[in-house]
């Protein structure tokens, strides 16, 4: 059964290339909350501080909190981009991450070539991912633009293409940033429908968002983050009432 277990999970970003010592001192003096000096005398930003949680199969978790609370960092850590500096993280199950839509997109390539490229990023071979092109093109409503370089797309078309490419999957653990809820009005309907399908098929959903409507609609549990710590963790209604 898919699950996510974190024990004392800690992520720190060292501020390299900081230079002058006086700047270092000033930074440390004015921000006792997130910045600290580690054993090697580097200034580090504590992005996540000792998180403990366990998410079991069937749970729909919303990560909420102000900007900079650590929501996206936590998603990236769960996806395996950052290795924890302290503590332990276990993720069981096929992970699908919808974090940055444009990641791995090549502006000079056509829509079709990008679909193939994205397939390779996911570990498919060329033939498998090329077969997806028509389906993705139709969903994104690209029509003849499928064979035109992406740099000549309108912003909306780029968003639709990356959304369509990113959502061709059926992961057990779905990690999603709230960007995926954006898009133009007509496409929003379609996107919402697609995401609902993905969310229902996934065993676990972890969604970082500011939109409380979405939280109430999709999620069963909310984790409220503040300055890299968990402030509240529980059923959506309880956490939202307290916050």
């Amino acid at each position: 059964m898919p699950y996510i277990a974190a024990r004392d999970l800690t992520i720190e970003f060292p501020l390299y290339h900081l230079g002058a010592r006086s700047l270092k001192k000033r930074l440390l003096a004015h921000s006792p909350l997130r910045l600290r000096q580690d054993e090697a005398n580097r200034v580090v930003v504590s992005a996540l501080r000792g998180l403990d949680f366990r998410i079991g199969a069937g749970e729909r978790v919303a990560l909420i909190g102000r900007n900079g609370a650590g929501k996206t960092t936590l998603l990236r850590t769960l996806a395996g981009v950052y290795e924890p500096v302290g503590g332990r993280l276990e993720v069981q199950g096929q992970i699908g991450a919808l974090i940055d839509p444009a990641a791995g997109m090549d502006q000079e390539s056509t829509g079709r070539e990008n679909i193939t490229l994205r397939g390779l990023f996911r570990g498919m071979d060329e033939a498998e991912s090329a077969a997806l092109a028509e389906e993705i093109g139709a969903f994104a409503g690209l029509g003849e633009f499928l064979d035109v370089p992406v740099r000549s797309y309108s912003a909306g078309m780029q968003v639709r293409l990356s959304f369509a490419i990113a959502t061709v999957m059926s992961p057990e653990v779905l990690l999603m940033d709230e960007w995926f809820l954006a898009g133009d009005a007509e496409f929003r309907e379609k996107a919402r429908e697609k995401l609902t399908g993905l969310v229902e098929d996934a065993d676990i959903l972890v969604l970082a968002t500011h939109d409380m409507g979405v939280v109430r609609e999709w999620c069963t549990r909310a984790i409220l983050l503040d300055a890299g710590r968990i402030l509240a963790d529980g059923p959506v209604a309880e956490v939202l009432a307290a916050a």
Partner: peptide
């Protein structure tokens, strides 16, 4: 259902580096 484990106390660095190289070359 692959299991992803990252433990700061037991980093298993060599194993992960070898797996990284093997996966990179396979793909």
């Amino acid at each position: 259902a692959p299991l992803y484990v990252a433990d700061a106390a037991a980093p298993r660095r060599r194993e992960k580096a070898l797996a990284d190289l093997a996966t990179g070359f396979r793909r």
